[in-house]
Simulated assay, not measured.
Amino acid sequence: MQEMSKARTDLPEMLVMEILSKLPVKSLTRFRCVCKPWSSSFQTPHFITQHQQNNLKNNNLNLLLKRCNGNTRDDIHYFSQLYTEKGQNFSVKQNIHLPFFENCWYAPEVDGPCNGILCLHDAGKAALWNPSTREFKILPPSSVQRPPSVDSISFGCLGFGYDSQTDDYKVVRFVTNYFEENEDEGLMADWIHQVELYSLKSDSWKEISVPDVHVYGSPLFNNSVDGSYYWQAISNSDYLILSFDMVNEKFSTLPLPEFGGTLAQYYLQLLDFNGVLGAIFYPREGTDKSFDLWVMNGSWTKQFSVESVPGVERPLGFWKNGELFLESSDHELVLFDPSTQELKNLGIHAYRETMQIIAYVESLVPINGRPEHEERMIRRPGAPN
Rank of each mutant, 00 (worst) to 15 (best):
R352Q: 11
L256A: 03
M188H: 15
N222M: 02
F244P: 03
K22N: 04
P219I: 00
I357G: 11
P315V: 05
I153Y: 02
D292F: 00
E18V: 01
G382F: 02
S328E: 04
Q52V: 03
Q269L: 04
W38S: 05
G112F: 08
L364R: 00
L326H: 14
G112P: 09
N345E: 10
Y78L: 15
P141H: 11
S149R: 07
P148M: 04
R67Q: 09
L23P: 01
A123T: 03
P384H: 08
W191N: 15
R380F: 07
P140V: 11
D245L: 06
C119V: 04
Y83G: 00
P255C: 04
E180F: 11
H77V: 00
Y83F: 12
Q52L: 15
C33F: 01
E135Y: 04
K137A: 03
Y78E: 14
L61M: 05
F273L: 08
I96W: 01
G298Y: 07
W231K: 15
S209E: 10
P131N: 06
Y230M: 07
G261C: 03
R173F: 13
K6P: 01
L120N: 11
A279W: 14
F47T: 12
N345P: 06
A126G: 09
I117F: 11
P371V: 07
G369L: 02
S218T: 11
G369D: 07
P211S: 08
P148I: 08
S154E: 15
P315K: 02
L187S: 02
N95K: 12
P24D: 11
H193K: 14
V195K: 12
W294Q: 01
L293V: 10
T354E: 13
S329A: 09
F336R: 03
G298D: 01
V172F: 15
P141L: 09
S154Y: 02
N103T: 01
S199I: 10
P147L: 11
K125I: 09
H97G: 07
K57V: 03
F174W: 12
E85S: 09
S235M: 04
A383N: 06
A264Y: 09
G322N: 06
S149W: 04
E181G: 00
D111H: 07
F318K: 08
Y239K: 08
A107M: 02
E353C: 12
I280M: 05
E85L: 12
N248G: 04
V16S: 11
L158I: 15
C114W: 09
E135L: 03
D74F: 12
N71T: 04
G369N: 13
D151L: 10
W294K: 08
M188L: 09
L256C: 13
S299R: 08
S5F: 13
V150M: 06
P148H: 13
G156R: 09
L65T: 10
K22R: 13
P141V: 10
L220S: 14
N62C: 14
S243M: 13
E372K: 00
G347N: 14
I357R: 03
A7L: 10
K57W: 02
D184S: 10
P366D: 03
C68D: 06
S290D: 07
Q265S: 15
N62Y: 04
L256T: 05
R376I: 03
H331P: 02
V110T: 14
Q81L: 14
P338D: 10
P384V: 13
K201F: 01
V25S: 14
